[in-house]
Design a protein around this nucleic acid. Structure first.
Lengths: 346, 346
DNA sequence: TCCGCCGGGCCTGGGGCCAAG
DNA sequence: TCTTGGCCCCAGGCCCGGCGG
């Protein structure tokens, strides 16, 4: 099938192999391998000939064969639930960037639901697809009992339960949610109402817990919690209820989109933000600075989170699976804009 | 971490191979292979023994070895520029889902800039990483001259130049932008101003062209075009300029986030939306229904777009590279909400 | 004799082909 | 005819041995 070879539908040209390059350069395959790996024990002239032949044929190493013999795939797996959520998408982008910089590719597995079953399935897909390690983004409750790992490969959890047996990057939701709540209390609000994320989200639970803790510590009353599903629509729905109550002067929403929905509901109810009701969000999505009014929110450094995930994973890869579990914390920070202010003088 | 096995740093347990399974089941590796591939010519008893042994050892096929011998990787590559853009993230998610359903994995390569160089680099990374085909999301100007493909693998472009030599899924931006512009004209506006995306974006250019074309066809004056960078901040900046002009009564922004910025600028300038100025966006990001006021915009079916990308790619894989270039169009639709209305009675 | 450079043989995990039971 | 195993190949890396200066 060589030489004359007339390409016809269904026929894929076999990519050039080391042997082809060797033939053209008049050396052995072994020498080609050495050049490809940048080893020093090759004569300058020879190396040049080989490189020329490579260029001429458009040679690329066959990663499958390489992975087979080396036992390393230079590929990281990422399991994510909801890529339409801003934070997850940003984290994935950052992971991808960091991995690329370290010479790794990223294999994305999409878990439809945040159940352990779905994660496990995604996990199998990834290990079956040859990855050296896995990052789980926005994990729900994961423990090793639930998650039965087929082969021991390193796992890093971004923003998962801190009591899991895996290394993790902790977005320090507690600090962020605490700061948001405290900010409102400091402005003079008697208490703060919370529009939380879905019950099965670990992030949502931590934010709610920090909100409650901050109120308790300040000896402020703890209003009943409302739970949305991260969408603006759910924020709007809950906001409509809250807008009807006179005693609501400060609302902390668990993400910016729900805060947006809350603000629309308040607007429609004729309650001004921030003079009558203050609203704080979480995430600092880029457009939150252009909400009406610009939103006070908690900024998360997704870039850093992604970078840390890759860093931890690579550390574990180098150190071996037995290596110690590590937890890295990435600090959020409160960004004060125009949606918060003192409560109306009663 | 069970039984005798004492894991120590640096030691990765070699995953079980067919040979190990064969040994345990008392058959040949060949038979194990047959069972793994679900071939029928295996005795029921034997198959059972093999399956049991597989479970016991936690056997998973080595995809590297499989890819090596089959020449197929069962992996698709995706090249994307900006995953923080909602549409791109959604498309990636949909691609990932569709690929998974077809038994393929997705390898994401991140191109920092939308230059041909960056794409080419990402391309090499992917082909070097063993993919069967590539989807380029939100391509800029790509032609085969610029993009030198190392080995002939199928490529599908989502939303790229329609004169490219690749198969593509066309979001029909022209129809969407035309409908948006026409909607405003139909409401009685004398003309429509446009806040465009970045110059180097193909999507942005098509939306702008359709806007201009619709105005021309309606014999409406064509105002100077302003170009932002998709961010709400850029929309705000341009919006500030537009808000200062009395003759601006209708604005079509090339995406929802810029529309949001425009609306904030109008709000700050004391110009009401929609009674004084109408605003239309593009994308229909989920939260746009909760903007103040809820945004009239053009809905894009990213789920369908992703599905079509994978479909085209798989078709090409089955048909061979020589197969005809295909173009599939996914229709957007106008969603009318509360940000548009007739112009103020002059 | 030693060292720099190069090639042969063998190994990785799995699947196709063919022959044997 | 149906089931099973032996052999070879996929592409590339490592060990070792050899050749020459």
């Amino acid at each position: 099938m060589a030489g004359v070879e007339v390409p016809f539908p269904g026929a894929r040209k076999r990519p050039p192999s080391q042997a082809d390059v060797a033939m053209l350069a008049g050396v052995s395959a072994q020498t080609v391998s050495r050049v490809a790996n940048g080893l020093s024990n090759v004569d300058g002239q020879t190396r040049e000939r080989v490189l020329t032949a490579m260029r001429e044929l458009g040679y690329q190493r066959n990663s499958a064969a390489r992975a087979l013999v080396l036992g390393r795939f230079h590929m990281l797996g990422v399991i994510s639930f909801d890529l339409s959520a801003h934070g997850n998408a940003r984290t994935l982008a950052a992971i991808s960037r960091a991995a690329q910089a370290a010479g790794y590719s990223v294999n994305v597995a999409y878990a439809e639901k945040p159940t352990e079953d779905a994660v496990q399935q995604a996990f199998f897909q990834l290990t079956g697809q040859a990855v050296d390690g896995v990052v789980v983004i926005e994990a729900q409750i994961l423990d090793r009992q639930g998650l039965h790992l087929p082969s021991a490969i390193p796992v890093v959890v971004a923003d998962g339960a801190q009591n899991s047996p895996f290394s993790s990057v902790d977005n320090n939701q507690a600090a962020g949610a605490g700061a948001a709540t405290q900010h409102l209390l400091d402005l003079g609000h008697r208490t703060v109402w919370h529009v939380g994320g879905p019950e099965d989200s670990y992030s949502a639970r931590r934010r709610a817990a920090a909100w409650r803790g901050t109120l308790t510590q300040a000896q402020a009353p703890v209003p009943p919690q409302h739970s949305g599903d991260w969408t603006a629509a759910s924020g709007y729905r809950i906001g409509t209820e809250l807008a009807a109550r006179d005693d609501v002067t400060a609302i902390f929403a668990a993400n910016d989109h729900m805060a947006l929905g809350v603000m629309l509901a308040l607007h429609e109810a004729g309650r001004d933000v921030p003079t009558e009701v203050s609203v704080v969000g979480y995430d600092d999505v880029p457009e939150s600075a252009c909400f009406i009014p610009p939103l006070t929110t908690v900024h998360q450094d997704f870039e850093e989170i992604g970078r840390q995930c890759v860093g931890l994973l690579l550390d574990q890869l180098d150190a071996g699976v037995g290596s110690a579990q590590a937890v890295v914390s990435v600090a959020p920070r409160l960004v004060v804009r125009a949606s918060t202010g003192p409560p109306p003088a009663a």
